[in-house]
């Protein structure tokens, strides 16, 4: 392996950060991994925008316009894009709102919900516009690999990164494949 480190970017879109937490569960193995990779745009580094990178790990689906912009930027800048976790793959828990109209969701949350004070639907211009439905990543950009799980285990993260670093086609043993 040459000395240039592999650049990895990560993002959490419409997710819960659980996949990032699970990734950090690789614990001390992170030290070994950092000999081969460096992190670019990521909540872990707090770098907000994406430069060219080798691998993008994306958690969460698409629930608003900002999610789509972040995803497009990562896709344009990454050689390999990996959809990480149930939400990125099929919308996951946030996609449960697809059963209702956006108006119904907003009214239930901000007007009619239990314990709501000063009921009003937020409409600040700073807020990203919500999409009418939550979508998985592959409906908007090309996805190179999928890492299922809610969340994928730390071992699954290490396996897919290890395979890519070794130049192998990433694969997951059946015992690491789960959707929950």
């Amino acid at each position: 392996m040459n000395n240039a480190k592999i650049r990895v970017a990560t993002a959490s879109l419409a997710g819960c950060f659980g996949c990032h937490m699970s990734f950090l569960d690789i614990d001390e193995r992170l030290v070994g991994l950092l000999e081969h990779v460096e992190f670019g745009r990521s909540p872990l580094t707090d770098i907000k925008h994406c430069g060219p990178c080798d691998i993008a790990l994306i958690e969460g689906g698409l629930c608003n316009a900002e999610n789509v912009h972040v995803l497009s930027e990562l896709r344009a800048n990454s050689k390999i894009l990996i959809a990480v976790g149930a939400c990125a793959i099929n919308g996951g828990i946030p996609a449960m709102r697809n059963h209702y109209s956006l108006r119904e969701c907003l009214e239930e949350t901000y007007l009619n919900g239990v314990g709501v004070e000063n009921p009003q639907i937020p409409n600040d211009v700073e807020l990203p516009l919500l999409l009418s439905k939550v979508h998985p990543l592959h409906e908007v950009v090309h996805v190179d690999y999928y890492l299922p799980g809610c969340p994928p285990s730390a071992d699954a993260f290490l396996k897919i990164l290890g395979d890519l670093l070794a130049g192998d086609e990433p694969s997951l043993p059946k015992n690491l494949l789960h959707y929950d």
Binding site: N90, A95, K133, H135, P136, H138, P148, K174, L177
Partner: peptide, 21 residues
């Protein structure tokens, strides 16, 4: 359904979600 999907190595839904009500 999930177990058969594991057996077949299914990773994603491939098609757009229909999200029926």
């Amino acid at each position: 359904l999930q177990a058969v999907a594991y057996h077949l190595g299914m990773l994603d839904g491939h098609f757009p979600q229909l999200s029926p009500r």
